[in-house]
Amino acid sequence: MKELNYNDIYVSEISGRYINYDHLNEFINALPQEFKIKEEGKSVRSESIKSIEFGNGSHRILMWSQMHGNESTTTKATIDLLNYFKKDSTHINEILKACTIKIIPILNPDGARVYTRVNANRIDLNRDAQDLTQPESRVLKRVYENFKPDFCFNLHDQRTIFNVGETNKPATVSFLAPAFDQERNNSPSRKISMQLIAAMNSTLQEEIPGQVGRYDDGFNANCVGDAFQMKKTPTILFEAGHYSNDYNRDMTRGYIFKALLKALDTIAYNKILDYTVKQYEAIPENGKQFVDILVLNPDFTVNKLTKSGIVAIQYKEVLKDKKLEFVTGLHVFEKEPTEIFGHKTLNCNDEKDMEWLKSNDLLNLLV
């Protein structure tokens, strides 16, 4: 594959964090006829859940995004992937001959419309794999059973709190080969998931060295990834995270696109055995040591401080008039780490930093 120029692939009309089908429909409806668009079912509020299928190869890959309605980065990456496959090249044609790809860009359209993790019944679809209480969960199960995928890609976003290992590097992309049992043993399908992740990591390390993490692999049969791994289908969890000053996640979107393309490339050219389980296990686990804003040397009331004597501030994403706002609030750690990192660090002994705090109305959080 020759070097690709991502700027030629990036779909600029679809950007930002707030993404629903209103933003995608024009692009989807304009896809060439080789892309088969289908309504797979409806959401709680009767909005269409669509899929796009393309390619005619024996390797069958199923992807779904925005199972959590407020996790849109991977949706944008799948749009870029569709845009790439609209083009004509030897590399593209070879993948399409080897693979059949089915993408559900938004599984939870009701949650996407109001920017919530849960669906309209306030159910987390990624905890509904066994009970199947929700129409969206049943749509995914039906697509899985009818399409009979050889690989499943479960596409998500993760919060800005995650770092790689114990380093001060953000987990810009994280992966997981979900467990299939409580003991977290390695089945043949889970090993394949690990090898594919190792392949994607090899590409991403060239782009964002040290910024790829491994997500927690605690087993939960109600999670879709674990459920599909239990069915012996190699399944991968993708988590799109934070890149410096990229709160719209347009940089991260590009890294997810490149990871997806590397995975398809590895599958199409039968290169999975070129990568090992040990390479996967060498990816550091995610830590939870980041906050959005770290305030040092605050001369304020003690109850605002962490044990380390600093103030930790985190953004909350709030949808207002169909626009996303980042609202600041104090961060409470589940378990305070020994060292805390800030995506932005401010020092109260610095006049410029104090001016920034004042101009952004943050002093009220510190007193």
Rank of each mutant, 00 (worst) to 15 (best):
K2M: 11
P188G: 11
V11W: 03
I28S: 06
V295W: 03
T73R: 02
K344F: 12
G16R: 03
Q229K: 13
Q158V: 12
V118K: 08
D250K: 01
F54G: 02
L155P: 02
H343W: 04
N349H: 09
N270P: 04
A240I: 06
E94V: 12
E285W: 05
K231A: 12
G165L: 06
R138C: 07
D124P: 11
D22A: 13
N286M: 00
L125K: 01
K87P: 03
H59T: 14
K97G: 08
I52W: 00
N168D: 13
L273V: 04
N83K: 05
V143F: 08
E206F: 13
V277H: 01
L96G: 04
F300T: 07
D321G: 11
N56Q: 13
T100Y: 08
A199N: 02
R184L: 13
V291N: 00
V173E: 00
S46V: 10
D265E: 11
N108D: 10
I101E: 00
T90W: 00
H331F: 15
E285S: 11
E355G: 07
K288V: 14
L296G: 02
N185L: 14
N7A: 15
V311E: 02
V277T: 04
C348R: 13
G342P: 04
F153D: 06
L82S: 03
T100L: 13
I79H: 06
G57Q: 09
K97R: 14
K322N: 14
F333C: 15
G241D: 05
N364I: 14
D80A: 09
Y10G: 03
E94D: 15
S72L: 11
A120G: 11
R113Y: 05
K271Q: 14
I236D: 02
K50P: 06
L296Q: 14
F333L: 12
N20D: 12
G57F: 08
D250I: 02
E26S: 14
G329N: 11
N83G: 04
Q33C: 10
R249Q: 11
I161Y: 01
H23L: 09
V367C: 12
L132P: 00
L261T: 03
R142I: 07
R45T: 14
S12W: 08
A198V: 09
C348V: 09
Q211S: 06
T345N: 13
K38Q: 15
S202W: 12
I14G: 03
S359C: 10
I293Y: 03
L324D: 04
G254R: 00
N201T: 12
V143D: 07
I293T: 01
I313L: 11
V367T: 15
F54R: 08
I19C: 02
P178R: 00
K322P: 04
D265K: 05
